[in-house]
């Protein structure tokens, strides 16, 4: 730090201008309520899509604390998905511990243990350097999971058994479990973690993160402990990723290295941009749209990656605020019109 006038910012990190507005919370609660009602009229197939959505939305809420609020774009965030997923796999199929609450605790602990040293190294860098470092750690993690066959099962992965929820065992088929008790369990987690994130972004802590995103040097002269705050944001986002990963692994029934392959980290970035990183609700909208879009496009054409890529380009060029930005704009226009 020698030049006093550098202004740092991440081009794609649209400021969370919505952060202080209560509309973000309402939008979140409306989506959650709709999801709670969904099992009463939606098809089983639709419901099986929703649990991965809950998992991704949780991971993405964490991801966006780092990206949208702190201005750090991680290209290796799927690492935390894999930490949660492998925690679930090791606990259920190696140690025979089936309590999902314990699985969550272990996922959180493992995420913190990894996030602290990795974050410590990464948050000293910003912009592309931060992105590249996190990408590198993600790849490193992928190859560790791949190579340590004896422990991780290599490319075969590890099975994730059906967990107990609040100590209760559930009979019946896998689909019944995933679209019944586990559906509501995961939705409950999303609700709780969403409300928690709402508090975080609206705290003085969250304000300091946004100041860092806007202008780290000025922030430091206003007493903001830039490195420490970035590290805290990284760890919190890692924990959200770990929890999301554990849920995701239960729905798949398997933890394999694919979950941390770099394209998976890319998908997280895609979802964030799709939903709009500038809004609190962006991650939820983005992951929902991603899950639905992927399902829709994949059933129509095998060139679904092409379609997804085209969508991304259109969004970045024409709607940098993402879907929540478009919705917010329409809402404002509607209110003005009436």
């Amino acid at each position: 730090m020698s030049a006093p006038h550098i202004v740092e910012s991440t081009a794609l990190a649209r400021p969370a201008a919505e952060a202080s507005r209560a509309s973000g919370l309402w939008a979140f609660l409306v989506i959650v309520a709709a999801m709670a009602a969904l099992p009463f009229f939606a098809s089983t197939y639709t419901l099986t899509l929703m649990v991965p959505f809950f998992a991704l939305a949780i991971a993405l809420l964490g991801f966006n604390l780092l990206f949208g609020y702190t201005g750090l774009l991680s290209f290796g965030h799927a690492m935390f998905l894999s930490i949660g997923a492998y925690s679930a796999a090791v606990m259920t199929s190696k140690l025979g511990i089936l309590s999902f609450e314990l699985i969550l605790l272990v996922s959180i602990a493992a995420s913190v243990i990894i996030a602290v040293p990795v974050g410590f190294l990464c948050v000293r860098y910003t912009r592309i350097f931060f992105g590249m470092l996190t990408l590198a750690f993600g790849m490193l993690f992928h190859s560790v999971l791949y190579k340590f066959y004896g422990i991780t099962g290599g490319d075969q992965g590890m099975r994730v058994l059906r967990p107990l929820l609040f100590g209760m065992e559930f009979e019946g088929g896998k689909t019944a479990f995933l679209t019944g008790p586990f559906y509501y369990y995961a939705l409950g987690l999303l609700t709780a973690l969403g409300l928690l994130m709402w508090r975080i972004v609206r705290s003085p802590f969250g304000l300091h993160l946004q100041a860092i995103r806007e202008n780290a040097q000025k922030a430091s002269y206003l007493g903001v402990e830039v490195t420490r705050m970035r590290l805290s944001a990284y760890v919190i986002s890692g924990v959200y990723g770990g929890i999301g990963g554990a849920i995701l692994a239960i729905t798949i029934g398997l933890a394999d290295p694919e979950i941390v392959y770099w394209t998976q980290s890319g998908n997280l970035v895609f979802m964030a941009v799709l939903g709009g990183s500038g809004a609190f609700i962006g991650p939820v909208v983005g992951s929902l749209a991603f899950v639905l879009l992927q399902d829709m496009v994949m059933s129509v054409t095998q060139y679904w990656r092409f379609v997804m890529g085209a969508v991304l380009i259109l969004l970045v060029v024409f709607f940098p605020g993402g879907l929540s930005g478009i919705a917010g704009g329409l809402f404002t226009r509607f209110k003005r019109g009436s």
Partner: peptide, 25 residues
């Protein structure tokens, strides 16, 4: 801070001075 409001900008300094950032909630 281009995207922060005047209130938020001043709040950044006040939060540091009053040591409010230890608890993210």
């Amino acid at each position: 801070f281009p995207e922060l409001t005047v209130r938020e900008t001043l709040g950044v300094a006040a939060s540091s001075r009053l040591k409010r950032t230890g608890n993210p909630l």
